[in-house]
Structure formats: structure tokens, C-alpha cells
């Protein structure tokens, strides 16, 4: 099994000693949030990027650390409506199938080519969010595939540590997926009751001194000391309805107001994303 053709290094690899003379405060590499707590990051949304698909859209979110650099990059393509496979049972509705896939190079840790459980989980969340938005009975006996590729994940390259932020990153990713998929669905000409967009809000604690946690919209995990709870909302603005709500964290049940205002801020973030979505769609007709 040994590789004899090359001259390999010694078996027990070690890190070269590195003497860090920098001042100790440099260790805290967390950048701080420069936006106001109720401001979302800038979005770029474009439809009709994949000519071969029935509908497609591309979304980019400004990065956190250095303004101007992109953070999240998503591309979504919608195929269909098309005939269901012969084995599928009769369906009076359109059958949605959603696939969310990280590109292998999208995150700090390489992703495999097969979808892992977190990607499947995102797919189900996306399906729930979209199912409420589309008018399914307009397209009987047909199926539509919605494929979201995450080209670049929303992660801060500056931080070397993995702080267990992946779960919070997932929420940001999901909200982007919802917005981009809604744009692609509209581009494909599939009937929707409304334009659905995603928004994230989190309860964050920035200081260690036990100060009261605050609510931040569109949070970037690496900018905050600790995230206590977060929610991702898929919201239909004209109908004032929520198609998907995903909350996780740790909140005392006695403080329901905190939960309500967290969801309210999530909806606010979703409304911001929706404005971009509507601008983008109006651009395609006008």
C-alpha cells in the first residue's frame, strides 16, 4: 500500500512551530457588526441565467468581513413542468421536488458529491416554503424539479476556527434558497399565490458581561459572540402569511414576547428580500 514512487514525508506529521508575537488581543478575530441591527445585507438577484432550464435565478449576498466581496452565492434552476415518471401515481397537483446541494468547495470543510443529511433537511424546508406559495392544482399530472446549488457558502474566511456555527449558517442559506427559488419559479411561469422570500433574525449576545441579548436581523454568526436563538421565516407579503417557520435556540417559555418579536424581525428581513425580488421580476417584464 505504501506509495514508493514519491519521496514522502515522515509518517507522523507535525505542525511547524510558529511563535506568535502578536499582542494577545489579536486572538479575538471576530469582526463586529457594522450594520445597524435591523438592516439586512445587500442582495443581488437575477433571473434567466440558465438558458436550458424553464426558469432560473442567481442570488448573491454581500459578505460580512470586507464590503464588496460576495458571501453567499446561490444558483437555482427550475425544470418543468414535465410529465411524471411512469411509476409515479396519479397526482391532481404538481409534484415538487427540491434539491439543495452545496458545491464541494462551497464551505470550509469539503462537501461530498452525494447529498448529506443537512442538505436533505434544507431541501425539505425549501419544499415546505414553496409548497405554500405555488398554486399546485394548475398543473395536474406534472412534476417540477427545483435545484439550488450553493456555489459559495456564507462563511467568514477570516476566522480559522469552526465555532459550531454551521447550524446558524444553514438558516442564512435556507433564506437565500427560498428567495432564489421563488424568483426561478416566477421565471419558469409556474403559478404562485405570491412571491415568497426568506428572512432570518437572531437573538444575539455580543458581550460577556451578561447584558441583555438583542435581536439582529440577517445575522452573521462570526460577528456575534453568541447566538441564543434564531429563526428563518418564509413570508408572503401580500397575503401576510408565513409558509415556513424554522426556529431553534433556547428561549424561556415565559417570555413569549421575545419569540414573537424574533419572528417579527424575521418577517421584516423577509420583506427586505422581497423588495429586491419584486424589483428583479418587474425588470424582466418592463
Amino acid at each position: 500500500m505504501n506509495d514508493r514512487r514519491r519521496i514522502n514525508g515522515p509518517a507522523g506529521a507535525t505542525l511547524a512551530p510558529f511563535f506568535d508575537d502578536a499582542a494577545p488581543q489579536d486572538l479575538d478575530t471576530r469582526s463586529t457588526r457594522s450594520r445597524p441591527p435591523n438592516a439586512t445585507r445587500k442582495l443581488l438577484l437575477k433571473t434567466g441565467v440558465t438558458p436550458s432550464a424553464s426558469g432560473s435565478a442567481y442570488l448573491e449576498i454581500e459578505t460580512s468581513a470586507k464590503p464588496g466581496l460576495s458571501g453567499l452565492k446561490l444558483s437555482c434552476s427550475v425544470h418543468g413542468p414535465r410529465a411524471l415518471p411512469k411509476s409515479a401515481p396519479f397526482s391532481p397537483h404538481i409534484v415538487l421536488s427540491t434539491h439543495v446541494k452545496y458545491a464541494p468547495f462551497a464551505t470550509q470543510q469539503r462537501r461530498g458529491y452525494l447529498r448529506d443529511s443537512s442538505e436533505r433537511d434544507l431541501g425539505i424546508h425549501l419544499e415546505t416554503a414553496l409548497r405554500g406559495a405555488i398554486i399546485a392544482d394548475r398543473w395536474p399530472k406534472s412534476g417540477v424539479d427545483i435545484i439550488v446549488s450553493i456555489i459559495e457558502g456564507d462563511q467568514d474566511r477570516e476566522t480559522s476556527k469552526l465555532q459550531g456555527d454551521e447550524v446558524w449558517d444553514m438558516m442564512n442559506t435556507l433564506s437565500g434558497c427560498i428567495t432564489v427559488a421563488a424568483a426561478a419559479l416566477a421565471d419558469a411561469g409556474i403559478d404562485c399565490v405570491d412571491t415568497v422570500a426568506g428572512g432570518v433574525a437572531a437573538l444575539v449576545q455580543d458581550a460577556d458581561d451578561g447584558s441583555a441579548p438583542s435581536i439582529a436581523v440577517d445575522p452573521i454568526p462570526s460577528e456575534h459572540k453568541r447566538i441564543l436563538a434564531a429563526c428563518c421565516v418564509a413570508y408572503l407579503p401580500t397575503r401576510d402569511e408565513v409558509t415556513n417557520l424554522w426556529f431553534r435556540g433556547d428561549l424561556p417559555a415565559s417570555d413569549l414576547d421575545l419569540y414573537t418579536s424574533l419572528v417579527g424581525h424575521g418577517i421584516q428581513a423577509s420583506k427586505n428580500a422581497n423588495r429586491v425580488l419584486i424589483d428583479c421580476l418587474s425588470g424582466t417584464v418592463g
Binding site: D191, V193, T284
Partner: peptide, 30 residues
Amino acid sequence: IPGQLLGPASRYQPGPGTHLHESNLHASLV
């Protein structure tokens, strides 16, 4: 744009690309 209010259902009939919601016609397509 999907979701946009087009007019009351008392004055228009829904055609393709529209839907009814609370006796109002809304668009369902771009």
C-alpha cells in the same frame, strides 16, 4: 407580479395567470 392585486372579483372574471383570494383577483404569474 405574483400576488399583485388586479381588481375586485365583482368586476372581473379570473382568467389564466390569475387567482382569487378573499374576493379579489390577484396575479399568479409575472
